[in-house]
């Protein structure tokens, strides 16, 4: 990969209790690109994703060895501020999870936590974030309505707007479309294409066609190992490894 690397893992291992869930994963995530992680259920793709913003820290009895760097800085260094790391590395989950508050409050929440107090500045951030998440036109007249009244697809775009409001560098997406219908999915996929101009996106998806459509790079994982990682067109047209070939042609998984 000739692009600038934003996240790099080196010999990353992770254990949940006795289970060796990630095994010597070394990969580079290029900046301002979309990288997809694919693989059968339980292969470690979500676990790997959650390493990038140290979300696995919240789980008991997790042991991690190896190194992960963000902008060439070790995210496990003792002086790393996890809150600031998670500001830089935002996340969108499988099921849309808006706060039970107004649309405006949902987006303004992050900037408020990070110290923005002026109403006009918060208004600016809310509008900009909702615009970037391609949902502004649909909600501009009802910013004070509850976010729970939005459709599933709108809720998911609101969650993306909420992530964008704290100006992250990287957006992690864990199966962001699996709870959505095809039209809402298409909107999120279009949005991912726009987001990579300013952000780096890492997406976990079980939908290989989606990985092929939206990503520039694809990593295939199997039983905790990164089997192959390369340009998406290479992975889907002529993968180097037989395991990858067998998985993407539906012979297992």
């Amino acid at each position: 990969m000739s692009e600038t690397t934003i996240i790099s893992t080196s010999n990353l291992n992770l254990w949940y209790h006795e289970k060796h869930a990630l095994q010597s994963v070394s990969m580079k995530i290029p900046k301002n690109k979309v990288t997809a992680l694919i693989g059968p259920s339980g292969c470690g793709k979500s676990t790997l994703l959650r390493c990038f913003n140290r979300l696995n820290d919240l789980i008991d009895q997790v042991k991690i060895t190896g190194e992960i760097t963000l902008d060439n800085e070790n995210i496990h260094a003792p002086d790393t501020d996890v809150v600031s790391l998670r500001k830089k590395v935002g996340m969108v989950f499988q099921k849309p999870n808006p706060f039970p508050k107004s649309i405006w409050e949902n987006v303004a929440y992050g900037p408020k936590v990070h110290g923005v107090k002026e109403k006009c500045e918060l208004d600016r951030i809310v509008e900009q974030s909702l615009r970037h998440a391609a949902i502004w036109d649909e909600v501009r007249d009802r910013l004070n309505d509850s976010a729970l009244g939005l459709s599933g697809g709108q809720q998911q775009r609101l969650c993306i707007a909420r992530t964008l409001a704290v100006e992250p560098e990287v957006i992690l997406m864990d199966e962001p479309c699996s709870a959505l219908d095809p039209i809402a999915t298409a909107k999120i996929e279009n949005l991912i294409e726009l987001l990579k101009e300013e952000y780096t996106v890492i997406i976990v998806t079980h939908n290989m066609q989606q990985a092929a459509r939206v990503s520039d790079y694809t990593g295939f994982m199997y039983l905790g190992k990164l089997i192959e990682c390369g340009k998406t067109e290479q992975i889907f047209e002529h993968p180097k490894e037989d395991l990858t070939e067998n998985y993407i042609t539906g012979r297992f998984g």
Partner: peptide, 9 residues
Amino acid sequence: NQPMAKDMR
């Protein structure tokens, strides 16, 4: 089926 890799080829 949206075939991929060898299937597509």
